[in-house]
């Protein structure tokens, strides 16, 4: 079964993320793109998110929040996944400090969905797209009535 996302549907999901989730709004996240089991979400640089004031580098926790959101969005956009999902586990690997002043963009792929679990991986990039800032792997719940498909949660 496929679930083609119309441009209107994509815009609706994007609004759902940027406006309906208080923490995503607090971090200024914006949904750049969403497809079947794939999501791209970005977050602006902000002095309030700094983890080390000596260097101005963003706190790892803010990157984690972006990654978790992006992974969740990828799961919800997957045609085989149910409407609602929750994180079971998430592992973040920090490759290097994000460059101060630059936007951070996370790209997540939900690469497998079973009857109960969705498996996701993600990468976080700043403006130097050749050197990842962080990567993540996670398992998310994919439990629920199979008739409730993916994007209905946000419609």
């Amino acid at each position: 079964m496929t679930n083609d996302l119309t441009p209107e549907k994509k815009a609706e999901i994007a609004r759902g993320f940027t406006e309906a989730i208080p923490h995503c709004r607090a971090l200024g996240m914006s949904l750049v793109d969403i497809g079947e089991g794939e999501a791209t979400i970005s977050m602006p640089y902000d002095d309030r998110f700094v983890g080390d004031p000596r260097t101005g580098v963003i706190h790892g926790g803010a990157v984690s929040a972006l990654m978790d959101t992006c992974c969740g969005a990828a799961v919800m956009s997957h045609p085989e996944a149910p409407a609602i999902t929750a994180t079971i586990d998430l592992r973040i690997d920090y490759m290097r400090p994000a460059t101060p002043g630059q936007r951070i963009t996370a790209k997540a792929t939900c690469y497998n969905v079973t009857r109960s679990v969705a498996f996701v991986r993600a990468v976080a990039l700043d403006e130097d797209e050749n050197r990842p800032v962080a990567t993540a792997t996670g398992a998310f719940t994919a439990d629920g009535d199979p008739s409730r498909k993916s994007t209905e949660a946000l419609s």
Binding site: I21, P22, G61, S64, A65, D68, L90
Partner: peptide, 13 residues
């Protein structure tokens, strides 16, 4: 519910 990312950030902090 609290955002999973907030939980992650809280524990890391």
């Amino acid at each position: 519910a609290i955002h999973g990312g907030v939980t992650a950030a809280f524990l890391e902090t």
